[in-house]
């Protein structure tokens, strides 16, 4: 079990391997889309790992990238359609970023590095853990951005009204896209300080 836990901290895909930042940070201004995005990536990552691992002995190496892209886009479209049907509010916020999961380097990276050479069950676990490790960073970033930027969590106000009366203001800067990057930088800093 322990060998699967690496992606959550020691080998975290975002913090250590700098993979998959692309499609992610733009959805971290609030908790709810961040959690949905994290779950979507986890599902896509886990199942495409599983499928590629099942097919691994039949895939001709020369066209493996195309095959991988096909399998990943299949799951992404599936997730996208389900979101539009079941979680309409969130799917509006995520818009094109769900589609961009396809080119999320974490997923392609795990398919190349793990699923092509491992058995199905470990691949499923590996995909899931990497997806979760990625999601963890998203959710932490979203937590701080929503709390400090809007004074809410999961759309519920958490900063007491008396604070605002006393002169507390939401930090509008936190909401802007570049702050997501700076927060990730700070997270890396914190993580490196703790682990080294």
């Amino acid at each position: 079990m322990k060998k699967y836990l690496g992606p959550l901290s020691k080998d975290n895909p975002i913090l250590v391997q700098t993979l998959g930042v692309c499609s992610a940070l733009a959805v971290t201004a609030q908790m709810k889309p961040a959690v949905v995005m994290a779950l979507s990536v986890t599902v896509v990552c886990a199942f495409s790992n599983l499928i590629i691992s099942l097919l691994r002995n039949t895939i001709p190496p020369r066209i493996r990238i195309i095959v991988q892209l096909l399998v990943v886009s299949f799951f992404v479209i599936l997730v996208d359609q389900l979101l539009q049907a079941m979680l309409y509010d969130v799917s509006k916020i995520l818009s094109v970023f769900v589609g961009l999961i396809i080119t999320n380097c974490i997923i392609m990276g795990r398919l190349e590095a793990f699923a092509l050479s491992h058995k199905p069950i470990p691949s499923l676990m590996d995909g899931m853990m990497n997806g979760l490790g990625y999601g963890l960073v998203l959710v932490v970033v979203a937590f701080f951005r929503e709390l400090l930027g809007s004074g809410t969590l999961w759309n519920h106000p958490v900063v007491p009204a008396s604070w605002y009366a006393a002169g507390y203001m939401n930090n509008g800067l936190m909401i802007l896209p570049p702050m997501a990057l700076i927060l990730v930088g700070v997270l890396i800093w914190a993580k490196n300080s703790l682990t080294s």
Binding site: V16, P177, P178, L181, I182, G185, V186, I188, W189, N192
Partner: peptide, 12 residues
């Protein structure tokens, strides 16, 4: 990476 992210944020 840490400083790289922060610089990108500042550029942004």
């Amino acid at each position: 990476n840490g400083i790289a992210y922060i610089i990108t944020g500042l550029l942004g």
